[in-house]
Design a protein around this nucleic acid. Sequence first.
DNA 1: TCGAGCGTTCGTCAAATGCGAACAATTATG
DNA 2: CATAATTGTTCGCATTTGACGAACGCTCGA
Lengths: 266, 266
Amino acid sequence: MTGSGTQPRRLATVARACDIVAALNELGGAGVTELAEHVDISKSSAHAYLNTLREQHLVVRDEGRYRLSLEFLYLGNAVRHREPLFVYGQSVVEDLAADSGEYVHLMCEQHGFERNIYKSAGEHAVGGEYHTTKEQQPDYLHFTASGKAVLAALPEQRVDSIVEEHGLPEKTPNTITDPDELFAELSAIRSQGYAINDEEEVMGIRAVGAPIRDADGEVLGGISISGPTGRFTLDRCHEVFAEKITERANVIEAKLNMSSASESLR
Amino acid sequence: MTGSGTQPRRLATVARACDIVAALNELGGAGVTELAEHVDISKSSAHAYLNTLREQHLVVRDEGRYRLSLEFLYLGNAVRHREPLFVYGQSVVEDLAADSGEYVHLMCEQHGFERNIYKSAGEHAVGGEYHTTKEQQPDYLHFTASGKAVLAALPEQRVDSIVEEHGLPEKTPNTITDPDELFAELSAIRSQGYAINDEEEVMGIRAVGAPIRDADGEVLGGISISGPTGRFTLDRCHEVFAEKITERANVIEAKLNMSSASESLR
DNA sequence: TCGAGCGTTCGTCAAATGCGAACAATTATG
DNA sequence: CATAATTGTTCGCATTTGACGAACGCTCGA
């Protein structure tokens, strides 16, 4: 029995508004009737929701179709610029991508999922294509390098609840789908200080990731470098990329700590 | 008497949820009590809103503070990639920025305001700093080059209603604040094909902008190049930048039309 | 140890919303 | 070009929902 305590109160109207935003995103815009069918509410309700969101400038109407407005771009930018990991990590990610020629990602954990904060493509970068338009399936932590690095740095009970909530879906034959196996892997990651993704998300792609912690030792997120198995042999992963990535993770940590140290001077 | 017809129905709960999102953005995160005071609702209500938004993954809680999640970054990216102006204009903007060394912006009109879709900074770029964290005042169309270019390409009655709704606030002594003056200016812009911002938004900065239209002649948005008055003399604006910017606007239009032409082949 | 402030829960009542039907507008079609 | 079919919009009513304030629990600091 896991579910303890009481659930916080839910506002159905707010939840539905969020569903509508999600639907508009998936559909890339919709008319009243189409949307009403998609989220299973009456036409008149759909109309009311859409027009309220439009009044709030989150939705625009163009030729009878309602679409999400560019307000989301502004909000997203603002959110990102408030993320310390982005503020202090952006240039580090760019440098490493330029030096190595590969793809470098900066991410953190939110709601038990992986969220990319920033990515930079080196000259020979492969993969990392973004889910732009279509339904973007959420990114799990257990099949990416930085994701596993973050999991390894999280309290075990947190990992437990994440696994319980989201499960360990399989993406490739190499994906870790067994909780015990995952915990063994996390333990290994803890001792070596970095994580390797050996074609566990996409066949043909390996990656190496490291966690980024704040001054108190809490994980803020992770950084990873990824590329084709040809250039990312297991040997090179352990020998050259592991060092590169942990070094850069350290640089970001240092920048973070310097900034928080100077903050406390006030 | 302007207000004709009836207003569409407003869902107060949805509007409040949007207010809360906006408040969290302005405050950069908040606790329950702080937020409740800021949007003037009870603590228990604030609690319910925040937890519903959290359940929907739009908000995260970290050390007792609620903040907007990176979901907004994903949504914003998706919105942008669905914008034809971005898809076909991004590389053009980058090229012009690189060639000229100046700031180049791609924008469109939404809700009577200017919304930036993409920007690229050339080597000597000045200005264009983004409102990242703090309360971002909306950008008006009447004091930017691309904004005026778009207004000039919009139906007059549309401009009327925009002016009526948002007014013509003054940003610098050069800002056009008189409707008649604005309409005269728009008329001039229509005949010359481009717009000039002569320190109307920021003192020391001039810009030249041009509209971008689809195959039916409807404006989709605008593109502008901006820089310090030293390099952007009025002469050079009219002679060299006006040609540059209209040429690039045309390139984007061509790309747009080619893509929509090939679409209709199905 | 105690107090102050914040976060959370609960019950009640007023208010807001969901629905369907009717109407208007727009587009497709013969 | 006229008519049909589809979509968007408005309205009134029944009912569910959310707002409030009080009380409780928790955390942090004095």
